[in-house]
Write a protein that binds this DNA or RNA. Structure first.
Lengths: 168, 168
DNA sequence: CAGCTGACTTACGATTCCATAAGTCAGCAG
DNA sequence: CTGCTGACTTATGGAATCGTAAGTCAGCTG
């Protein structure tokens, strides 16, 4: 159980989960669309207006997020209106909540202006603010510095002086 | 304590913490550099090689992250070598760990290939895998759907049919 | 003081991403 | 069958970002 950080060049992040995630949501607008989706936005032009982007950008991101399975395009019909399509979170998309919460929390702490954060997420049952914390499978809270990096099943080891120990 | 999502157009995300955070780390390479920094990388060309980007991109991102206060450029000297500079995490940067953990966790669950994730973060004391969970200030675990959005001190309310209820 | 090396910077062209503006398309209302 | 509206697509041009390749700069070594 040696910490892999001690010999960082002996392994590759070619199949890094973070990099794979960022291929889907690795740009500002995709993240902000996920923020809006988690805030309850469903309709095309609401996404564009509330995120503050143009329609082509909204269409492109919504298409990518739908293709990646974070959103699904479902028909709906308001009385006296024709059938339209809404973008609804899938389980994969709902699971993304932790990322948005962590990002909002970091932004609230380190990047908010003097006025403070615009919104607070609260626990339904007790009203207390919600935040993201690190915990291990045994239920212990994990403080900064109390973790180490271990090999996962998909780890790719490389020769120590291989020209390609890189990965994205 | 009405959920703000019920009237999403009555308030603006102009000073959104998520958007502010994304102005610093809202691109793929900045996120991957933060990943590497949290994995222990300190030196310029290690960042470039391990992230898999060119030197100009590495220089630009490291400069931005340093200017934003997530990293600091500190001198170091190896025996018999001249003084060089390393990029070290600040508290602001270390706090970003939760975002990277949430992103990795989501990627492990939803975007990993058959081989599985390359690395596992484990709790130092007990060896169990670490993950990000949502918790409220009263110590309750927050399950999906058990939270609502409340006004924060920086909330900007807008007229219901204002042309600019947007924000990024 | 010349060579060497790590840490950058500059130059360049390709690609991606974006906003604005205009056009398309479907189907209910009249 | 025309008007209207929401949900897009197409066209165009500008800005950001990227990789490759080459150049610069500082300071220890010899």
């Amino acid at each position: 159980m040696k910490d892999l950080r001690e010999d960082r060049d002996a392994w590759s992040m070619a199949n890094c989960s973070i990099a794979k995630a960022l291929e889907i949501v690795g740009n500002r607008t995709a993240m902000l669309i996920m923020r809006e989706a988690l805030f309850g936005t469903r309709r095309f032009d609401d996404f564009a207006r509330r995120v503050g982007i143009g329609e082509p950008a909204a269409a492109a991101r919504l298409k990518e997020l739908t293709a990646a399975g974070l959103l699904e395009r479902v028909p709906y019909q308001e009385p006296g209106q024709r059938t339209r399509y809404a973008y609804q979170l899938t389980q994969k998309g709902r699971d993304f909540r932790a990322v948005i919460v962590a990002l909002r929390q970091w932004g609230d702490t380190w990047a908010a202006d003097e006025a403070g954060p615009p919104v607070v997420v609260r626990h339904e049952n007790c009203g207390a603010p919600v935040h993201a914390v690190l915990r291990c499978d045994n239920g212990h809270d994990v403080q900064p510095g109390e973790s180490f990096i271990d090999a996962g099943p998909g780890l790719i080891r490389v020769a120590a002086d291989s020209p390609d120990s890189s990965g994205g």
